[in-house]
Design a protein around this nucleic acid. Structure first.
Lengths: 204, 204
DNA sequence: GTTTAAATTAAACGTTTGTTTAATTTTGTA
DNA sequence: TACAAAATTAAACAAACGTTTAATTTAAAC
């Protein structure tokens, strides 16, 4: 994959995030990437396949390093903390693709069923399940909760920050994108962690 | 607003939810509503204004009855429970518009700044703030949390269920849309409530 | 230096887009 | 019945869409 192909993918990512897949034309992408329109078909075949290629390549970055959650002698609490931290950090560092994935995944049925997409989702859900099992087996976690629901809380809270970026950036009075990213990786991660930990040690 | 106008709005809502605003053509809407294409411009002016009209009308349903949260002598815990229940129920009953709002609100900048949209968001955030203040003043809530973060957890968890409907309906082995809706108003509401309550009574 | 393949271009392709037109039908009122 | 307003229609509009073509330039290999 050469320089020009990468430029096309980067331009597509920026525009799909900002205007959506259907709201972006191949002419927009060509102009943003500073290439001839025909180059997109030439390299990627079609607009649809360009999106697929974008996912295929970027989804590689979504893999979380399991060792940092399980391998070393972490307590269940440490595993949970590391999971949440790594999870949010990973998604945040790929916020562009993540938003495209959220928006288009909710619309286009083909994409929702795309292998690579479903695989990542199931894998992530599996990580949550395993951390939960660890906590229950050690007795650290008291409250029994469905991994699906816990995962929804974790991801949903983060997703809400991605989808309502402008609104939240406004009321939080955060000026730059970098500061917003920092807020997510500090305050938001901390909040999600506190929330989930409180639930898991909750005794009725 | 006559019969035919309502049919157009209903058709638009279904299609915008399924395929997105930019993925839906006015011809699609006309066919779905079984009216002539020109009727859309005739009644609403343009496709953009049709979306605005849809929001203006549907957003009326998003108002939550404050009395059921504050007016009667509810404890802070009861207020919290009612807030979450009413909140999720309201959003779930308007799931179509809510999804359109989430998707298009994250893309089109004009809409994000539309008055009615921002007003609803701020109003909802205000409800959370007031419930929190009530709990802190009575001493029921121990853990101090930003209303924005708490709101994100509440809405995000729900939103995650709307955006990943197909995936979740699949792994939860829920067959019908009605059963999914029921799951949201029972298990999901309960989960959100337990989570937030656990956080608020959490003592470090 | 010649040859062959890859990269790049401007232009055109046929569709589809949102919107408008001008004519016709329906409806309500006097 | 006659008239005016509202509703409805098929057709047309220009613009934008994704994609392809055929010609040209660049790069690599021999």
């Amino acid at each position: 994959m050469n320089e020009k192909q990468h430029e096309i993918l980067n331009a597509a990512e920026r525009l799909f995030e900002e205007k959506g897949f259907d709201g972006t034309s191949v002419r927009d992408i060509a102009k943003e990437a500073d290439v001839n329109i025909a180059m997109i078909s030439y390299y990627f075949g079609s607009k649809d396949k360009l999106l697929e290629a974008l996912f295929d390549i970027r989804l590689e970055n979504f893999k979380i390093n399991e060792e940092l959650i399980f391998k070393y002698c972490f307590s269940a609490f440490e595993s949970l903390e590391n999971l949440i931290f790594l999870y949010v950090k990973t998604m945040n560092q790929n916020a562009g693709v993540y938003k495209i994935l959220s928006v288009e995944g909710g619309l286009k049925k083909k994409l929702i069923n795309s292998d690579s997409f479903t695989r990542v989702k199931k894998y992530n859900l599996d990580l949550v399940t395993r951390v939960l099992e660890k906590g229950y087996s050690t007795g650290d976690f008291k409250y029994v909760v469905s991994p699906i629901l816990l995962h929804s809380t974790m991801m949903g809270t983060f997703m809400n920050f991605q989808m309502n970026r402008l609104f939240l950036q406004n009321i939080l009075e955060i000026q730059s994108d970098e500061a917003y990213s920092e807020y997510i990786e500090n305050q938001l991660v901390n909040h999600i962690h506190k929330t989930i930990k409180a639930l898991l040690i909750y005794e009725e």
